[in-house]
Design a protein around this nucleic acid. Structure first.
Length: 434
RNA sequence: CGGGGCGUGGCGCAGCCUGGUAGCGCAUCUGCUUUGGGAGCAGAGGGCCGGAGGUUCGAAUCCUCUCGCCCCGACCA
């Protein structure tokens, strides 16, 4: 992408409405613009980040055997009456009516809809278990939206739903999600710790929330240092093996981790390597049995012809919230520091002297090497402006091309995370990045 | 939803109390100079002061209503 032809409107000054770092930086780096309270337009760079995160979530869901589908944002009130939640959900649900006066709603979640789809088509125990998910916009009419995208009203969420024949099966599905989630957060470049959680308005008795450690997080968290050393990206766990999953699950949940609401001083005192910090909830998984399948009449035939009511679980990841959460975890005074896995561009190529034949040629060569996926700062601005914007936007790598080195094919390569700069040939620089 | 605050060129703000033809910084455009960490000089464009009523010879300014946004609290992926 050529910056001179991109809608990436960076801001030099802090917008008055943004209070926390991630909100300020998302506006200043030109990732989003608010269009109404708690509702944001995702501009090109922000949209890239959002898609990068969604793709990692997607890959890890698929890897443990889940199926992706896409359900609509608008749902019929009728479905929610069947589960009893139409009245129970309250003012957080955005209710609409079409021209015929039929009652609709903008979905805050999809348990009813997927239970409905399943009851239409799944008839036999032979067809279970299954876990389905989609990545779709949700709307919850928060009383007070705040913190930018972290607490918006419209948000992008991955929500998954498992269907099993019994409790034992549901536990296996639940553990698969635990595995997928640990991998997701590790790939996103953040420490996310599973903490035992309340099940909230949806109900159930097996529930974990995933908390990203970030200095500006909303809740105080206490955890065992053992979580810092865990590595879940290795293919050490066979998700097809219940025994392996059980071992993994035990491993992940055996150490102490709690938010301040669930904090237990007595147990905490036993932890040898204590860590305290702030955290942001970015995921939540829970088992809730037949809470929806039963009232909605979802049944399958068992071996003996009996009717089995499947046990369900729900698994959410706040995809758009993660954009803010990642920035909370990765920024400094100058701007965002993107993890490589989600950065909108792997690198920015900074042309310090647009119009200089040597600089232009070397920049074009670098740009081509990325197949156009890098960002080329070809604006006719001063060096300082470009450096400041590059730091603000947080590209993992900066390839700085100036007239001094361009004559000899040399560039300066800067690593945003460390600030380390080295002079080398373009070929060597590309070799380090690609 | 309770309490507080703010709406004035794209962004950040002053002006309002004490009515009199709308101002500053940044950004934008033109020219010249400058050129490796947010340049200098000169000039230019851009705002029915959130909206609607009212008071007044005259309203950004005073009064009433309304809409929007932000902050603190109770609630949430």
């Amino acid at each position: 992408m050529r910056l001179s032809r991109s809608l990436i409107p960076t801001l030099k000054e802090n917008p008055a409405e943004a209070q926390i770092a991630s909100h300020r930086l998302m506006l200043r780096a030109g990732l989003v613009r608010q269009t109404a309270s708690g509702i944001y337009a995702w501009l090109p760079a922000g949209w890239r980040v959002l898609q990068n995160i969604a793709n990692i979530v997607r890959e890890e869901q698929d890897r443990v055997g889940c199926q992706e589908l896409l359900m609509p944002t608008i749902q019929s009130a009728e479905l929610w009456r069947q589960s009893g939640r139409y009245d129970a959900y309250g003012a957080e649900m955005l209710r609409l009516a079409d021209r015929h006066g039929r009652e609709l709603l903008y979905g805050p979640t999809n348990e009813e809809m997927l239970a409905d789809l399943m009851r239409q088509s799944v008839k036999s125990y032979r067809e279970l278990p299954q876990t389905l998910y989609h990545i779709q916009w949700k709307f919850r009419d928060e009383m007070r939206p705040r913190f930018g995208v972290m607490r918006g009203r419209e948000f992008l969420m991955k929500d998954g739903y498992s269907f099993d024949l019994d409790y034992e099966g549901a536990v296996v599905s639940y553990r698969k999600q635990m595995l997928a989630y640990m991998r997701i957060f590790q790939r996103l470049g953040v420490k996310a710790i599973p903490m035992v959680a309340d099940t909230g308005p949806i109900g159930g008795d097996l529930s974990h929330e995933f908390i990203i450690l970030a200095p500006t997080g909303e809740s105080q968290v206490f955890y065992d240092a053992a979580y810092e050393a865990m590595d879940f990206t290795k293919e050490a766990v066979d998700h097809e093996s219940p025994a392996d999953l059980e071992r993994f699950f035990g491993e992940v949940t055996k150490n102490y981790a709690a938010t301040d609401e669930k904090h237990d001083e007595a147990v905490w005192a036993q932890v040898s390597e204590q860590r305290e910090g702030r955290g942001i909830e970015v995921g939540h998984i829970f088992y809730f049995g037949t809470k929806y399948s039963a009232p909605m009449g979802l049944t399958v035939a068992g071996k003996d012809g009996s009717q089995i009511v499947p046990h369900m679980g729900s698994y959410g990841v706040g995809v758009s919230r993660l954009v803010g959460a990642l920035i909370e975890a990765h920024h400094d005074e100058a701007g965002i520091i993107w993890p490589d896995s989600v950065a909108p561009f792997p690198a920015v190529i900074v042309n310090l002297k647009v119009g200089d034949a040597g600089c232009d040629a070397l920049c074009n060569e670098a740009y081509a090497a990325f197949g156009g996926r890098a960002l080329l700062d070809d604006r006719e601005d001063r060096a300082g402006v470009k450096f400041a914007d590059a730091d603000l936007m947080g590209h993992p790598w900066q390839i700085v091309v100036g007239p001094r080195g361009a004559a000899n094919g040399m560039v300066e390569l800067k690593r945003r995370a460390t600030g380390e700069k080295v002079e080398l040939s373009l070929a060597d620089a590309l070799a380090k990045i690609l």
